[in-house]
Amino acid sequence: MRYFEDFHPGQIIELGSKTVSEEEIIAFARQFDPQPFHVDHDAAAQSIFKGVIASGWHTCSMMMRMVVDGLMCEASSMGSPGLDGVRWLQPVRAGDTISVSYETTKVKASASRPDRGVVWSKWTATNQHGEAVCTIEGMGMFGRRPDA
């Protein structure tokens, strides 16, 4: 179990990777973000992207899954009060493999609730070429290590 005390600024946790298929890109977009360059081959080919790309929200969802699987399921996570920023830096295309890292940027024990602390972090997704495709900055609450 990872507790608040296990996080420190500058710490980087690698969270794995995922290869995204065109079928996944289109299925997600049809349900949640049906813009033509996400769901229509012809329209996408005529767009500035020159082909179908994943919705930025799909990229964020894949990142969230890797954060949950690689960190939160084995941590004393108490949820998040929100995000400070999301940036979509490069399009994600069918066949791309994205890898996610979690960098702790700041930690602060709660003064009013001694059972928890806040961890600020920056998540970065990179593609198979080492290019950053998305960053998410925000904070999460984690339980403090129980007294021995």
Rank of each mutant, 00 (worst) to 15 (best):
F49K: 02
V133H: 09
D115R: 13
W88V: 00
A43P: 00
R145S: 06
P91W: 09
G10S: 06
M66Q: 15
E5H: 09
P36Y: 06
L89E: 06
V92L: 10
S55L: 04
T97S: 06
K18F: 12
I136R: 04
V100G: 02
I26K: 06
Q90P: 00
Y102K: 01
L83S: 05
A54M: 04
M64Q: 12
S101Y: 05
G79R: 10
E131L: 12
I25H: 10
A29V: 13
P146L: 08
G70V: 14
E103F: 08
T105R: 13
G70A: 09
T124I: 10
T19W: 10
D96T: 07
I25V: 13
Q128N: 05
R2C: 04
M62W: 15
V119A: 03
S55K: 02
F37P: 00
W57Q: 00
S101M: 07
Y3E: 02
H8A: 14
A109N: 00
P146D: 04
E103T: 14
S101N: 11
I12E: 11
A44M: 08
L89T: 01
R87L: 02
G70Y: 14
C134F: 07
I53S: 03
P114L: 15
E137P: 01
A125M: 04
G70W: 15
A43Y: 05
C73S: 07
F28S: 01
V119P: 05
M63A: 11
A44T: 05
S61A: 15
H41T: 05
E5Q: 15
V119L: 07
P81D: 07
T124G: 02
V39A: 07
E24W: 05
E23S: 15
M141N: 05
F7E: 07
M63I: 14
I12Q: 08
V20A: 08
K50Q: 11
E23M: 11
M64N: 08
I98F: 11
M62E: 12
F7K: 11
T19S: 09
E24K: 06
S21N: 10
R93P: 00
Q90H: 15
P9G: 03
L71R: 08
M63G: 04
P114N: 13
F7Q: 07
G130F: 13
D42L: 13
D69Q: 14
E14A: 03
D84W: 09
M141V: 15
D96I: 10
D42Y: 10
F142P: 01
A94D: 10
G143D: 09
